[in-house]
Design a protein around this nucleic acid. Structure first.
Length: 613
DNA sequence: AAAAAAG
């Protein structure tokens, strides 16, 4: 598929003239007469007439099936509205024009108004005074602007189209680390732009890196250069949509594959070429076993919600994909793990997939205090429905134009989700539900309907707990509390995103006593008001410690497990040994004492644990 | 024990 880039380059060199790509021999000859490098990075391939003519590629495969006809996705100026030709994704068969992922947005060149920024952008004021913790050797310093990083003009333009003005904290730190070629384990807040944090370096790396060799002879096997895995289908879809925006007109192709949807369409997309494959594990294993995908060329591996991907349910599949197929080993490929939460048992498992990695935890002080208002109410099992009804009524009263604010209600079981949805509808609350017993079509329809406000109440199992970015979720209700505090963190993280405020209400009763202590600790750390009755439950249940207890007092949602043992446990002074200056150059390495935490000198109170993506 | 992920 590299050759399709080559064709593009050739095409571009000919100023978009409809001439066939040069033969390999011609390419070589041309190159011999020309000292320019043979490889043309994708960000140069869509250049307009003013761009210097790139050298012809040395690896042209014209005549083979890997050299499809030249793409015609150059559009004058590159940034304009472009008129027709968009939205032909899925139509047209061999029409290779790239659908405009920004088609549904106002693409005018008007400066972004304050209001717009407020409504659509990220509220960066919410990200001041971020505590940052890094460990590992030679940590690259963070950047403050996208301009400081050379991501290439095409990517920069997409960043502007996305209305990203400056990098979020996780992006400031993670992008230089990734661009530096380092493996990374990153804990980052919910809704703080973590997808971009791993997409930008991957796209940039593919654009500027060496051209890929031709895929092996397996006729229909495709060889992506990057693999992004996520635990749910909807999250994979979302990552794919984001990544498509970031890679628009870069020549980098992103394809998604997940279960529950017809495989044939996904196969067709794969055959058109794939640089970045976004997938759920099951469908990927299927594709690997059918030999439709080979991982032999993988340079970048990203696990989103990495702790989830490595817990009991997923670990075997992930090991199979990463260790037992044909993926290059750690140290050869570059591996990036992202999550809000990273229990140290899982960190230990994860380290199998990493090589000399940097651990990064980025959080903001008092984030939950400012952004997610957490409440816990004591509600008997039998009273939950009527209590929920009260909340919804109160909200409706506050709603704009009688419109219900978006409310996401988490329950424990799929049956429970159906039952609650049914009951809500009976009571004139337009609700829908998403869970694993529904068809993929139903799941996607439910999500759409919720996002659009058509059914402003979504009853969900944990399938919706992680990663999903649903704008304007005003309220997350933990109708049934999860059994794991990390799940709670992810669930409430569906609100209070991109610097906006949110509300989270949990129903607590005797069935949740195992959560009392961890919930109390979490809320305390986030400067939330803890009801006295909850503290009593916590005191009562705390003797055994409890599996939900976060070690060391849990100032951060994540902490490098490699540092365990080099500090006295008990966590009275989590950051005490770190220098609180700007020293990002951690020198410690594994378990060494020389941890240079770049803790952003905050004395305003306890750190944050609340919302980590 | 539940949920998710292949069909």
């Amino acid at each position: 598929m590299r050759s399709s880039w080559a064709d593009l380059a050739a095409n571009s060199a000919a100023e978009n003239a409809p001439t066939p790509p040069p033969s390999a021999a011609a390419a070589v000859a041309n190159n011999a007469a020309n000292t320019r490098p043979v490889y043309v990075p994708p960000h140069l391939r869509n250049r307009g007439p003013s761009a210097p003519a790139p050298a012809a590629p040395a690896f042209d495969n014209s005549g083979s099936r890997w050299a499809p006809p030249p793409r015609n996705d150059y559009r004058g100026g590159g940034g304009g509205r472009g008129g027709g030709g968009y939205g032909n994704r899925g139509g047209g068969g061999w029409d290779r024009r790239e659908a405009n992922p920004f088609a549904d947005q106002d693409d005018s060149e008007e400066p972004v108004t304050q209001e717009e920024q407020e409504n659509t952008g990220i509220n960066f004021d919410a990200y001041e005074d971020i505590p940052v913790e890094t460990s590992g050797g030679n940590v690259p310093p963070p950047v403050n602007t996208f301009a400081e990083i050379d991501l290439g003009e095409a990517l920069n333009q997409n960043i502007r189209r996305c209305k990203y003005v400056k990098p979020t904290p996780v992006q400031r730190h993670a992008i230089p680390i990734s661009l530096g070629g380092r493996d990374l384990m990153a804990c980052a807040q919910t809704g703080s732009g973590k997808t971009a944090a791993f997409c930008f370096p991957i796209i940039s790396g593919i654009m500027t890196g060496q051209p890929a060799q031709r895929p092996p002879r397996g006729v229909r096997t495709v060889c992506p250069l990057a693999l992004v895995l996520s635990p749910t289908r909807e999250l994979s879809m979302q990552i794919h949509e984001e990544a498509r925006k970031f890679s628009y007109q870069t020549g980098v192709r992103v394809v998604v594959a997940y279960g529950g949807a017809p495989i044939n369409q996904q196969l067709r997309e794969l055959e058109r070429g794939v640089d970045i494959l976004v997938a759920t594990p099951g469908r990927l294993v299927d594709l690997l076993e059918r030999a439709r995908v080979s991982l032999s060329m993988i340079r970048y591996l990203a696990l989103d919600e990495a702790d989830r991907m490595l817990d009991m349910g997923f670990e075997p599949q992930i090991r199979k994909i990463v260790e037992q197929m044909d993926m290059p080993p750690a140290g050869v490929r570059q591996t990036m793990l992202f999550s809000a939460t990273f229990p140290k048992e899982i960190q230990r498992l994860a380290s199998d997939f990493l090589s000399n990695y940097i651990f990064l935890a980025v959080g903001r002080v008092g984030s939950s205090t400012d952004l997610i208002d957490q409440r816990v109410e004591y509600v008997q099992e039998s009273d939950k429905r009527s209590h929920l009804m009260d909340l919804l009524h109160a909200q409706r009263a506050n709603g704009v134009q009688g419109k219900q604010a978006l409310t996401l209600v988490f329950v424990e079981t799929k049956k429970g989700a159906d039952a609650l949805e049914h009951w809500l509808c009976l009571n004139n609350f337009p609700a829908t539900t998403i869970h694993g017993d529904r068809s993929q079509q139903e799941r996607e329809a439910a999500l759409r309907s919720f996002k659009s406000g058509n059914t402003p109440i979504l009853v969900a199992t944990d399938v919706a707990a992680r990663g999903l970015d649903i704008p304007h979720v005003a309220h997350v209700v933990n109708f049934d509390l999860p059994n794991d505090i990390d799940d709670y963190v992810h669930r409430i993280g569906r609100t209070g995103r991109a610097g906006k405020k949110g509300l989270a209400t949990a129903f607590f009763n005797e069935n949740n006593t195992s959560m009392a202590r961890s919930l109390q600790d979490l809320m305390q750390e986030a400067n939330q008001e803890v009801p006295a009755w909850l503290s009593r439950f916590a005191a009562r249940s705390s003797f055994g410690g409890g599996k939900n207890r976060r070690s060391g007092g849990g100032r951060f949602g994540g902490r490098d497990f490699r540092r365990e043992g080099s500090f006295s446990r008990g966590g009275s002074d989590y950051h005490g040994a770190g220098n609180s200056g700007g020293g990002y150059g951690a020198s410690g390495g594994y378990g060494g004492g020389g941890y240079g935490g770049g803790y952003a000198g905050n004395s305003a109170g306890p750190g944050v644990t609340s919302a980590w993506d």
